[in-house]
Design a protein around this nucleic acid. Structure first.
Lengths: 196, 196, 196, 196
DNA sequence: AATGAATGAGGGTTCATTCAT
DNA sequence: GATGAATGAACCCTCATTCAT
């Protein structure tokens, strides 16, 4: 990649960064192309030179985000910490990219783009699931996971926790409850029997 | 209430219903007043005769929804079924009003209306929490709830489950997992020890 | 006129009064039928029962106002005070009806209604001019009016003073200048020669 | 200023001219943005690209007009004609810009914009008054102005004449009276004493 | 490649007026 | 005769997108 190409890529990334930041703060519909242009210090038309239309821009922002999240996830799973600690990190770790990703973002994409490729599902099935499977195997061997539970049900739970905690207003409230929530996740509301 | 009043109320409800349905399907911002008018078979201006502006309309739809949800909740808690069954219903029962309430709906209101009274918080604190407290007392007495857990943590869990399951695309996927999810909720992913 | 008629007339007058007050305070275009209705404590449609449309309503308000002004004017001219005092009163007396008549009112009528009858011109020529003529005759005989001046020019001057002083923001400013303005009116900016 | 800038300025002026013309003929409220756009041969949105909103547009039209009037005024005062001739021109000269400025224009601005800087008052005090003062000094030295009169009173008179003559329907009527009006302005309705 | 300028389509809102009781 | 309810037309304004340089 020569200097020209590099500068071009840099500009594209500038736009993506500006768009990502704005989308995450204000949601998708509230952010206009002109605002993104201003934030990225380019003209509106320049955005159109790099991205076919707003649709496409959103799509690429999305991919950018998903990839980043995936790589974070892999890093944690392959790290050298205990199984419970891994789960804790997966659930509570906020991706830097998406510090406060607006839900609308997720929904918008789910609704508008489900037809065209469903990048996220592909990534999920091809990359995320295998990693999870490996993780759970580890968990079962160490006695942390009930082997009668389906992997789907557990994934649902993890996904739910992650999503919910993403919500800005929730995150603040539950920070002091981290330990308890982890405990409920492992032992349920009935609680751990002490005599075990 | 005479015939006049009744017809008026009926029309207002028509508009509220149309708006609710559209908001829940497409989100708030995507739905225009003119679409609501078309759906409700009235002119745009008629909507303005009943509601000051879009803001107000959204607000009233919101109240309509919250009240309905509360009344459903109360009914379940006071019903004559077992504690686990109650929790199951609370978590999985979809309010008819809000079959598939769009998250944006919640967020929009949280953001835009937080200043003016915060109706939902008031309802939550004054009505919902006391009912929950009573319910958990019941649960503890019957050994279903770990007494070392804070009520907040448990509420967080329930709220999270309810919210998450509200999501349309999630609901479909997890219907077959209902039993398992309930089990994880009670006993965690470590699972119930059979010798208990 | 029986009681029925009288009540009807009363209601019409209520509407006219409300409209007049609002027009004079806010101008014509800024005042909506619904505001007039509210101010007069009737329904919008009631206004349409008495006046064909907004046009007509404005027209009638106008006539109401002109008649009142004319009668005030006549009273001053026929009163028992000196000529200069009469002029002073004509110029500086604010009609109660039109304490602060909005200019737009005048202009709107001049523009929109000039075709249809020109009530004001008729009144002016048939009633006002003769009275003025009589007044000036009086002034000339007493040496207050230069006989070489045309009556039109003097009328212009008087009209101008009256109109200008009507303006709310002007009126306040020139109150302390009343004497001087009268003096200029009589003796011009060159001033009265003291040795006369 | 390059070609780009110049064309932009030109277009902005086109819009200002169209707006000015329409405002002066029909008043401010009656003129819609779409009418201005049509008159200026641009799209509505183009107007919004140059002016933030209707408010701003009106404001700029206003400044355009005031500046033009001021410059005309200065030119007359500094010109090489007699004192009476100067006054005559000041009073009767219609600025080309504002051939028939609608009063509503003036009022609207006085009401709506009085808060924000009061451009006209500033101009008036800083520029107009000093020039007037100089002019009157000249008039007094030549015996045209009664030195016992306050400058305020005279200014009031001049302002009144100018304003009143601005009115379209008045202007036509008094054109043949120009000489007489000037005479009254200088010598009052009592008239000039011939033996002076 | 990059931009300033321009726009069609659509959004929320208001108003004078009519309909139906 | 009086009213509450309803509306078509118009208004100000925003946005994603294209044109022209």
């Amino acid at each position: 990649m020569d200097g020209f190409q590099r500068r071009k890529e840099q500009k594209k990334r500038n736009i993506l960064d500006a768009a990502t930041a704005l989308f995450m703060t204000y949601g998708i519909q509230k952010v206009s192309i002109s605002e993104i242009a201003k934030e990225a210090n380019v003209s509106q038309v320049t955005i159109y030179n790099y991205f076919e239309n707003k649709h496409t821009l959103i799509h690429e922002v999305f991919i950018y985000y998903v990839d980043k999240a995936l790589s974070d996830f892999e890093q944690v799973v392959h790290s050298d910490i205990s199984f419970p600690e891994k789960l804790k990190q997966i659930i509570f770790t906020k991706r830097e990219v998406a510090q406060q990703i607006h839900e609308e973002f997720y929904h918008y994409l789910m609704k508008e783009y489900s037809k065209e490729g469903n990048y996220i599902d592909k990534i999920y099935e091809e990359k995320t699931i295998p990693i999870f499977t490996k993780l759970f195997q580890e968990g079962m061997e160490q006695g942390y996971v009930d082997p009668t539970l389906s992997q789907e049900a557990i994934l649902f739970y993890i996904q739910m926790l992650k999503d919910y905690i993403q919500k800005e207003e929730i995150y603040k409230k539950i920070l002091p409850l981290t330990e308890e929530i982890t405990s409920i996740f492992f032992y349920g509301i009935v609680g751990k029997k002490e005599n075990e």
